[in-house]
Design a protein around this nucleic acid. Sequence first.
DNA 1: GAACACCCTGAGCATCCTGCTCAGTGGATC
DNA 2: GATCCACTGAGCAGGATGCTCAGGGTGTTC
Lengths: 157, 157
Amino acid sequence: MRTLDTTDLRILVELSRTPEATTVALAHALSLSRNTVQARLARLTEEEVFLPFERRISLEALGHPLTAFVQIHVHQQQLTRITEALKGIPEVVQAHGLTGTADVLARVAARNAEDLFRIHSRILRIDGVDRADTSLAMAELVPWRAVPLVHSLLDRG
Amino acid sequence: MRTLDTTDLRILVELSRTPEATTVALAHALSLSRNTVQARLARLTEEEVFLPFERRISLEALGHPLTAFVQIHVHQQQLTRITEALKGIPEVVQAHGLTGTADVLARVAARNAEDLFRIHSRILRIDGVDRADTSLAMAELVPWRAVPLVHSLLDRG
DNA sequence: GAACACCCTGAGCATCCTGCTCAGTGGATC
DNA sequence: GATCCACTGAGCAGGATGCTCAGGGTGTTC
């Protein structure tokens, strides 16, 4: 995978500032020609630097304001099947396989406390799941961000 | 906050399928008039149903392919200051205040193992942090998704 | 029933953006 | 010098955008 250069990073920052910006606006903001920006955007898209649009959908707007993290202990031999079962639960928004004490960390979106309990139970009932510990997110202390990382890259080189 | 109706949800699904779709294309795909789609998109934007573009930047493309979850135990009275300190670390991509055993769950993006160790140490050095347990994400078993949730809402009503 | 609010539709129009091509320039590499 | 690569400026046809307007459906309220 190619390492993004300064121009790429500046495009990402500018896009984060004004996501709806047109190619012309971007070119103007970065003092580049429209041609260049167009080529860069095409390449960034080609290289899948942009994640799916899905990530921009607000779960809160979907009526699921609660976020919870479920630490799941499983029989590791059955991980593949368990993963499929997790995918069958629409409220499971993301799941990672982890090192350490827990095997799987699932991120869950729920309507309310009862809803969360229902989802928790559903995860527990998956065959091969030993235990599941749910932690409710009370606050998003640091909202998702990537721009600071981009800036730290810009500062270095 | 308004509850999204069927048309809104269908727009979200279609946008997830083809994020680069123009208003005209969307209108055609959903058998709606361009006027309607334009009004809906404006309203969805106004209501902040769309999260910041930042969420679509691939951390892997930024040269940080490693994801880790750091469970942080803190002196709760100093949570505000600790939050600010976390914000000062660009590799901390997101952080939540949790119920349960740990106080804070931070999501970290790292270049490699040594980089992760460095970030872990930096978190540990924050004043008021008791301990920090890092779990490395070995696999994204369920990649981030919202569409299944949207579909479950569409199926209900 | 009448008035009202709300949403969708189709049309129109000026302006702007897009995707594409081409020729020219400058830097870096060998 | 020759080659490669990226950026630039220009041009052009086609299409999209933002906006407005009039009209029609539907549901609500009094």
